[in-house]
Nucleic acid binder design. Structure first.
Lengths: 266, 266
DNA sequence: AATACTGAGTTCATAATATGAAGTGGCGAG
DNA sequence: CTCGCCACTTCATATTATGAACTCAGTATT
């Protein structure tokens, strides 16, 4: 169970940080110690060390501890400097390792889909075809449909009217109405499928990646042989987890209602 | 020097986290160990423990370590749930303890200034006066001027035209032009002063608090006897630090140019 | 007003554990 | 093929985190 060289005191410190993160109003040493089953003295030493580094703040009057400004600013500086590629490559490779399929990280640039990173899998699927020049394929692949689905209305509308809904296979969506229905379905379920719409024999699953402002800035996706239809649900799960993880690394927080929470006042 | 019960391994882990936060592209175990002067094995144990908790991510191919999604999401959840009061009260109390003066945390609600939290100091200053009903005092106090100064133009303009620039003392700013000049100066220097503009004998220093979107959502301020003019510069420093710290806790990152960095692609 | 709680922070002997030198295995360069 | 580099593991040992008991201060109870 325990990996080699697990450092206990650090593990405890992480427990404390996790606990404090879930308690915006702050906690006393005693509360932490009791909840986590630590000795009060040990807890105090740990918290005090964290406080010395600004990872934890203490209210000088109530003596309650709370997540510290240093930790918050550290993470936020990291998030604002990190780019999609640096953060996404690792999880996409893990997705490839878990699924065995080729996994992709894609973004929308201008009106073209762009593969930021690709981790080639061991399962053999043909995923490339001669690219008709000037023809966008946003409507024919899972990642393209995902990027379209989560685009703000004012950007999606012009794109939809100008994009040619070229047919690639018998399954390609070729009418604006069908496409709108499909995009709505994608938003409702949180992932997109490609059922041999771009290349016969090729199936895909894609899920949206959000940044800290809740904008869909990328997709995670895998391509697998359409013949292995029974793997679909498992892949949906994996792709969703991967996308959620990259989103979290970008500072995305799933919100209940709106984003105004952050600025609310007691 | 070392506070009681300083836990070394945790301190080292914090060093590692700080280092990783400054390296969005990731670092190898060796690089970390060399830079921090740790044994490679020790470093590996620490990093491995952090990885086990998701505080650090490892690229499965390059094996480079990077700040982990769990840590990022933890902090961002904390930030979006925490409110100004919970985060600001501690630092404001510390400001009071450092300065000896009464310290305030204020916000703008509708068109009125509202004291979210007040830490009463030991230095005696009269800070209250009979409040003329219906009369706003945004233009007469340091925190009010700060809130006005950092308001987006479209919100400031209507407020400035509707606010009555009532005179409270001989030093009160009473013309729209003077006020505009003052607000510009406040934005340029990053803090505001009140030179007996509201109450004779009362001086104030205020600095803006920003949230993660860069909006000024509050101010930190202190009130001190105008007779102690020589303390002004020291107070400006303290108030500025306090405000910066609260801003950092709210997820604010001072940005070089614009806020689009977060969404940039490699 | 005196007493008993409760909780933060400290102390210190000791058991527990992080440490780091040396070693393994895997990968890439020459 | 060999060498060197690096992530990772091992394990004996010295370092260090641990926790029972304590102090101190504030607050509730009698």
């Amino acid at each position: 169970m325990t990996p080699t060289g697990h450092i206990r005191s650090l593990d405890k410190a992480v427990d404390i940080i996790e606990m404090l993160a879930a308690a915006p109003r702050g906690l006393s040493v005693r509360e932490i110690a009791k909840a986590l089953g630590f000795n009060a003295s040990t807890t105090h030493h740990l918290v005090s060390t964290l406080r010395g580094r600004g990872f934890v703040d203490q209210d000088p009057e109530t003596r309650a501890y709370r997540l510290g400004y240093r930790l918050v600013s550290l993470v936020n500086e990291f998030v604002s400097e990190a780019d999609i590629y640096a953060i996404g490559a690792g999880p996409i490779r893990e997705l490839r390792d878990r699924s065995g399929d080729t996994a992709y990280l894609t973004v929308l640039q201008d009106r073209e889909i762009f593969v930021v990173f690709e981790a080639t899998g061991v399962n053999p699927v043909q995923t490339r075809r001669p690219r008709p020049p000037g023809q966008s394929c946003l409507h024919g692949i899972a990642s393209g449909k995902t990027l379209l689905a989560y685009l703000p209305d004012e950007r999606r509308a012009p794109l939809l009217t100008s994009v040619s809904l070229a047919r690639f296979t018998p399954h390609t969506i070729t009418t604006p109405h069908e496409l709108e229905m499909e995009l709505a379905a994608i938003r409702a379920q949180g992932y997109a499928l490609d059922r041999e719409e771009w290349l016969v024999g090729l199936a895909c699953v894609a899920a949206p990646v959000f940044d800290r402002n809740g904008a869909c800035v990328a997709t995670a996706s895998v391509a697998y042989p359409a013949a292995q239809g029974e793997r679909r649900d498992a892949l949906i799960g994996m792709v969703g987890e991967t996308a959620a993880r990259i989103s979290a690394s970008l500072g995305y927080v799933a919100r209940g209602e709106d984003a105004a929470d952050a600025a609310r006042v007691a």
